[in-house]
Amino acid sequence: MRAMSVFLHDERAWVDFVLSKTALILASVVVIAAVYHFAVSMEHMDRQKELDMLSTELLSNIDKVGSSPYESNITYKFNAEHLSYLQGQQFEISISSEYVAIDTNIDGRSMISARTPAFRVYPYPPSILYNDLRSEYGTNGTIMEPISAEHKDIIGFLASRANEVSFDASEQFYIHKTFIYFADDINVEKIGYVLVYQ
């Protein structure tokens, strides 16, 4: 009882001092952590931007070839050496008929950037495309040997064959626009495909 009385009549205000300083230290820790987290997030966003830039560059080359009304061919060399954050990183590039994706690992953190091509993509060389078409339809779909099938069937078949293909970032990419010719009883028509291979 005596100790309680001493405590209650203690007017030195040390509890007030300890509480306010503890609150101050906690607030400082929270502010410093927020500033640090903010800086780290900004750096992460900059890295993501650079990765997006790389995927957009690759996609842009694919779309440029895809927009050509004729058969055309370009080569593309993936290069991240001019970038400040992603310089010297290892990249995994995967291309399917649906998307182009680049992923990398920085400080144990996985980052991915994916883009959708505007045109139909088949991630294999022309020889594989023609072999696939020949094995399914009996003809290879060139202008000399048009396929006797509906274009929806051909698209469906190629979509089922086209898996996600991994590409080596250090090797050159060949991007080739080709046409698959198909015929009904009267007309011969064509559908464009962009072939991406190494």
């Binding site: 008929s97 649906e98 998307y99 959708t116 091509p117 505007a118 045109f119 139909r120 993509v121 929806k152």
Partner: peptide
């Protein structure tokens, strides 16, 4: 439209 990717 089938000349373009179905995702676009």
């Amino acid at each position: 439209f089938d000349s373009f990717s179905s995702n676009v």
